[in-house]
Structures are given as structure tokens and as C-alpha cells.
């Protein structure tokens, strides 16, 4: 449990990391584990089985081109179900291995649908939602240095989008918690239309952080809150996690989906 600058408690009961068959779990899971550790929350893995895939597999001409072999083979619904089940099991093991050294309580939930929508629908008010980015292919330089906690976050930047709203304050506090736990730097992306609002918001953000004895490594002006602007700012800061304050819950799924299409890191949204 952490407190906002106003002294109100930010109660986070669960950190939900949403994953589907196409997401690489490491960065999102690392961020989720760090948050759960820092906030004293339960870690929940939410594996979303893609409904579209199951429907596709039922088509009579359904074929799959193997990524490792570049060869086509017929696909049936049972094949997809087996593969999804196997992935869920794999995720269970990864969750267990991640949570054990941190002493975290954890669970794995499996649901069907589209990952962002399903995650938004699943998360409650006291949940943090971490969603990894869907990629066509996963590229990595190999295993991260071993023996480190939160290896994908260490010596990297946690970025928080700040627009002065109460949700943004909460996101900033949580971002600070994440940065502290993971040993990362904190960059504040300030959504402002010009220099004046930026300065004002920067002062406000500084005060929020100052109340927690923290400072940000950088304050960056983001001209707009559109996904493309956020993506550019996050990339410039080499952000490994983006704290998105969220706005209206009903629009969250669309916005996050759009954001994930552009940014190259997992997005954390408040429930």
C-alpha cells in the first residue's frame, strides 16, 4: 500500500499481468512482479485464449505456416486448444518461478477473448493491469544477466504519463514505487500543449514525487496524448514500462490497444 501526495492511500490488491499466445512474457511479467513486490499485492497471471484463433481453426481450409520451419500444415481446433493449454501451463511455471523468490502470492487465470478487452474487463478497481505488447516476432539478445532481480527493468527507465489528473498522480506514485523496487530511473512524460502548462505540471509532478522523497531523472514534454506522441517520448527515454493513468474505463480497452500497437514496452494501467 502506498499513499498519494494528498496522503490518501493507493490500495492495490492485485497486479494483473495479461498475456496471450503472442506476447513474450518477460518484460510485462517483470514489471508486474516488481509492482506486486513493491505494493505488497498479489500477482495474477491472466492468460487470454484468443477467440479468433479458435474460430479460424474451425475453418475447413485452416492452415498454419510454422515460424521455425516455414512449412504449411493443416490446423484443427483441437491443435489450437492443445497449444493454448500448453502455453498456459508454461506461463504457470514462469509465474511460479518469478513469484517464489519474491515471496509473492500468485494465481493464474485463463479466459477467452481478445487480450486487452479481456484484461480490462477482468481488472477491478484495486487492481493494476500490466499488458505486454503483441508482436509478430520476438527479438531478444538472449537471456538477460542472471542473478539480478527484475533483469528486464534494471538500469532502464520507468516512464509515467502525467497530466495532472488524480489518476495521473496515482500513476506517478506507482511508477516511483516500481522504479524504486526495480532499481530503475523514472521519467515523467508530461502531456502539455505548451511550455507554460508543461512547467506547471512539472512542478506539480515534482511535488508529488518530493512527497515520497523521490525525484525524476527526466521530465519530458509530450505534445499530445495520442499513442504516436507517447510512443516517441517513451522510445526517446528507452522506457521499459509505461505507466498510463487511464481515463474512462469504458474507453480504456480501445486506447490501450492503440497504445500497445505503437509503444515498444508493456503498459501499466490503473484499474
Amino acid at each position: 500500500m502506498v499513499t498519494s501526495d494528498a496522503g490518501s492511500e493507493i490500495r492495490i490488491r492485485r497486479v494483473v499481468v495479461a498475456l496471450d499466445a503472442t506476447t513474450a512474457p518477460s518484460a510485462a511479467l517483470d514489471a508486474a512482479a516488481a509492482l506486486a513486490s513493491g505494493l505488497g499485492a498479489e500477482l495474477v497471471g491472466l492468460f487470454v485464449e484468443d477467440q479468433q484463433l479458435l474460430r479460424f481453426a474451425a475453418l475447413p481450409f485452416a492452415q498454419e505456416l510454422g515460424i521455425a520451419t516455414a512449412s504449411a500444415r493443416p490446423v484443427r481446433t483441437a491443435d489450437i486448444e492443445r497449444a493454448l493449454k500448453s502455453q498456459a501451463e508454461r506461463l504457470r511455471r514462469v509465474l511460479a518461478e518469478t513469484a517464489r523468490p519474491l515471496g509473492l502470492a500468485w494465481t493464474l487465470e485463463v479466459t477467452r477473448g481478445e487480450v486487452v478487452r479481456a484484461a480490462v474487463a477482468y481488472a477491478g478497481d484495486e487492481d493494476l493491469l500490466v499488458i505486454g505488447r503483441t508482436r509478430y516476432l520476438s527479438i531478444s539478445a538472449g537471456p538477460p544477466p542472471a542473478g539480478l532481480q527484475f533483469p528486464t527493468l534494471r538500469a532502464r527507465t520507468v516512464a509515467a504519463l502525467y497530466d495532472g489528473t488524480p489518476a495521473a498522480v496515482r500513476a506517478l506514485v506507482i511508477a516511483h514505487t516500481l522504479a524504486r523496487v526495480a532499481g530503475s530511473e523514472l521519467a515523467v512524460l508530461i502531456a502539455a500543449g505548451g511550455p507554460e502548462p508543461f512547467r506547471a505540471l512539472r512542478v506539480a509532478a515534482g511535488q508529488v514525487l518530493g512527497a515520497h522523497g523521490a525525484t525524476a531523472a527526466a521530465y519530458v514534454m509530450v505534445p499530445g496524448t495520442d499513442p504516436a506522441s507517447i510512443e516517441r517520448a517513451a522510445r526517446a527515454q528507452r522506457a521499459r514500462v509505461l505507466l498510463w493513468p487511464g481515463a474512462h474505463r469504458e474507453r480504456a480497452a480501445e486506447t490501450v490497444a492503440a497504445l500497445l500497437a505503437d509503444v515498444s514496452c508493456p503498459v501499466v494501467m490503473l484499474g
Partner: peptide, 24 residues
């Protein structure tokens, strides 16, 4: 263009959703 657990595939879509066998 769909990403399957171990590869890629193509499926016909209608209104942004993959067609069901019945629709097809």
C-alpha cells in the same frame, strides 16, 4: 493475418471478426 501459437495463418474476416465455418 493471424499469429498462432507456433506460426502464422490467414483467415477471412467479416466485420473485423474471423468468419465462422457457418458464415463461410
Amino acid at each position: 493475418l493471424l499469429r498462432t501459437p507456433s506460426g502464422f495463418s490467414f483467415a477471412p474476416v467479416k466485420d473485423g471478426e474471423v468468419m465462422s465455418p457457418e458464415e463461410f
